[in-house]
């Protein structure tokens, strides 16, 4: 086991209550509002806040082995790949040739990081908990792809962007990780510092499709 120091960013106090956390969009929702879905809503946006995000770097072979043991998921075999477990709760995405993004339900990341460090032993790797620095927005609905077409230069046509693909690209002058976990849903992994800007951009871009905010 490496001697890297770890600390739980969301410790449980008194074995009961967690320390209160706020989504990066808490203030944006307050200031910019969160329009409810209506009958003619063609696209909805939902924030999936407080997930566990771990950035894994290192050699593909050792990481793959450790992940299969700890998370039960292997690394995606191809560049731009995205794999997820059956319920879609845990996912691993290719970010660069030696970097992957592991997203797990909130609260699991600390334990997974510890077990990964144990499994990886003395291998050359790094694991960073970036859950506090980014959040996930989910776009769904028939016009979701049209909102994306207004915002990214990347080709999001289904023939070029099948389910199980994820890319890092430019979204409205900012950077996002754009991924497609299923036919109907698109996920944007966005940075905390850009969250307000992107939230307001999406509300504006989705206005013509009567965008609704869920959750």
């Amino acid at each position: 086991m490496s001697n890297a120091q770890q600390f739980d960013t969301r410790p449980v106090v008194d074995n009961e209550s967690e320390i209160a956390v706020e989504s990066p969009l808490a203030f944006s929702r307050h200031r910019s509002g969160a329009p409810k879905a209506k009958a003619d809503t063609r696209v909805t946006v939902r924030e999936r806040a407080f997930l566990g995000h771990l950035v894994l770097r290192g050699g593909a072979i050792v990481l793959d082995e450790a992940l299969r043991e700890v998370v039960g998921l292997g690394l995606p075999g191809e560049p731009l790949g995205l794999v997820q477990d059956e319920g879609g709760k845990r996912s691993i995405q290719w970010i660069s040739p030696d970097e992957w993004l592991l997203i797990v339900p909130g609260g699991e990341e600390f334990d997974i990081e510890r077990r990964l460090r144990e499994a990886l032993g003395d291998a050359h790797f790094s694991i960073s908990n970036v859950g506090g620095g980014q959040t996930v927005l989910e776009l769904s609905g028939e016009a979701a792809r049209e909102v994306l077409m207004k915002s990214v230069s990347y080709d999001v046509h289904p023939s070029h962007f099948p389910v199980g693909k994820g890319v890092t690209t430019v979204f409205a002058k900012s950077t996002v990780v754009l991924r497609r976990p299923s036919e109907e849903r698109w996920e944007l992994v966005i940075r905390r510092s850009f969250a307000d800007y992107l939230y307001r951009w999406i509300l504006d871009a989705g206005a013509e499709y009567t965008i609704g905010v869920e959750g």
Binding site: P79, L80, S153, Y154, V170
Partner: peptide, 12 residues
């Protein structure tokens, strides 16, 4: 050559 596909110039 790492992503193995063509991307827009603004990404580079």
């Amino acid at each position: 050559p790492h992503c193995a596909e063509h991307r827009e110039e603004e990404e580079f």
